[in-house]
Structure formats: C-alpha cells, structure tokens
Computed example of a mutant assay.
Amino acid sequence: MNIVITGASKGLGKAISEKFAADKQGHSFFLCARNAETLKAFATELQARFPRTTVNFYACDMGVKAEAEAFANWVLGFNKPVDILVNNAGQFVPGSISNEPEGVLEQMIQVNLYSAYYLTRVLLPHMIQARQGHIFNMCSIASLKAYDNGGAYSISKYALAGFSRNLREELKPHQVKVTAVYPGAAYTDSWSGSGVDPQRLMDAGDIAEMVYATAHLSPRACVEDIILRPQLGDL
C-alpha cells in the first residue's frame, strides 16, 4: 500500500507509521512533519528497522496552504495511487475563549482543520478516479464534548469532525472510505513532563492498532468512527 501520513515524526503519527511498517507487505510511505531534522531521523530509523518498506519524507508546515499543497503535489509526483491518507497534523494550545491570546483560534483552525482540507482536496480527485483509498481524520474526544480550557482547540476539532462527516457522505459512491478517529488522552510527547502518570493514559500504539485494523476490512465495510478513551475515563 501507499500510505500518506502527516505529523508523522512523533506521537500518533509516528505510532501509526510504525504499525503499518511492521507488517510484511513492504508498504511505501510518504511522511511529512514540520521539523525537518526530527522527520529525517525518524524516516531513516523506520527504513532501517523495516527494510521491506520504502520511506519517503517531506518537511513542511501543513497549516500553510502553499506548503500543504506542495506536499500533496510531491506525493502525486510519484505516480502511485494513495491507498491510505492519515490527516494527523495538529497542535494543542490550551485556553478559554474569554482569555486565550489573540490569534489562537486562527492558528488552531489552520493547523487542525485546514491542513486536512488542503491536502485532501489535492489528493481526492486521484483517489476518486482510482475508486479506492481510505482517509483517516485524527479528530479528538474534544470533537465530541466541550471541556474546560478547551477553547479554540476544541472548536477546531469539532470542525474537523464536521469535515470528516461531510467527506464520508460525499465519497460513498466513489468507493473511498472515510474514518474519523476520536482518541482520548494517549501518552505522547505532549504529555511528557505533565506530571500525569503514564499508566493513567492510553498508549499511542492503541490508536495505531485500531487504525491498522480498520484499514484491513473488506471493501464492503467502512468504520465511520473510532472512539477510544483511557480505561478510567477522560482526564
């Protein structure tokens, strides 16, 4: 399979990349992240660990339209069908609507919503023409339930859920699947140093397992929503 993953160098994107690379199929990866050095190090490590794979990488800021579209066109330049697209690029800035800094909403919308919109818009005609592919949009529990200090982040994730639902309806006749993923707290770099016991959180690999399993169903089945929470509930 040809697998496109944004925000791939750490957290859930990294875990999903590792999960697909670990099987024996020898997939081709097209990975992006903002930090070029971190991305190159991960891509090199992934290629070395799983020599059956082909790991291509491209550093860009997915919240910038021109960069997101450049990444999309770079992917298309390989002349390979996109089998899986994981819109994972995102950012979390805590705060309340009443007091968060000016510009946070615009920032959250750019990174958490527009990144997926820009990339998907360029790749989609090719997926529709091929009548195949599976799009995973990494939403959040914050897409489903407002919570204290969620502010602009939660607004952007609600919007991403709306994008995913509309996309699902639009693509039903074209045999392109769409899955919205709603993870609760999983232990990634963003929780490092928070003081929260890692045992209270899910593993990033838990989310990767569900995405992997969902991607391997028959063409006649589509999991529309994946909701995962820590066993003890949300934090």
Rank of each mutant, 00 (worst) to 15 (best):
V4Q: 00
G7I: 09
G7A: 06
G11F: 09
G11M: 08
G13K: 06
G13V: 13
K14W: 10
S17Y: 04
A21C: 00
G26T: 01
G26E: 05
S28W: 11
S28M: 05
F30A: 02
A33S: 15
R34G: 14
N35W: 10
E37K: 13
K40C: 13
F42E: 08
E45Q: 15
E45P: 01
Q47A: 12
R49D: 15
F50C: 15
P51F: 01
V55F: 10
V55P: 11
V55A: 04
Y58G: 03
A59L: 00
A59V: 06
D61M: 03
K65V: 11
K65I: 10
E67Y: 02
A68T: 02
E69P: 00
A70F: 07
F71Q: 04
W74D: 01
L76T: 01
K80W: 00
V82D: 06
D83H: 13
I84H: 08
A89F: 06
Q91R: 14
F92P: 03
V93W: 10
P101G: 11
P101W: 13
P101L: 00
L105I: 10
E106R: 15
E106A: 14
I109C: 02
Q110P: 09
S115N: 06
S115F: 11
Y117K: 12
L123C: 03
Q129E: 15
Q132Y: 09
I135E: 05
M138F: 11
C139P: 02
C139T: 07
C139A: 12
S140P: 07
A142F: 10
G151D: 02
I155V: 15
K157Y: 03
A159N: 08
R165N: 13
R168A: 14
V178S: 08
V181M: 00
G184P: 06
A185N: 12
A186Y: 07
Y187M: 13
Y187C: 04
D189T: 11
W191A: 04
S192G: 13
G193I: 06
P198M: 09
P198S: 07
Q199F: 07
R200L: 12
L201C: 07
A204G: 01
G205N: 14
E209D: 15
M210Y: 09
V211P: 01
H216R: 06
P219R: 02
C222D: 13
D225P: 10
I226H: 05
P230R: 00
Q231R: 13
L232I: 14
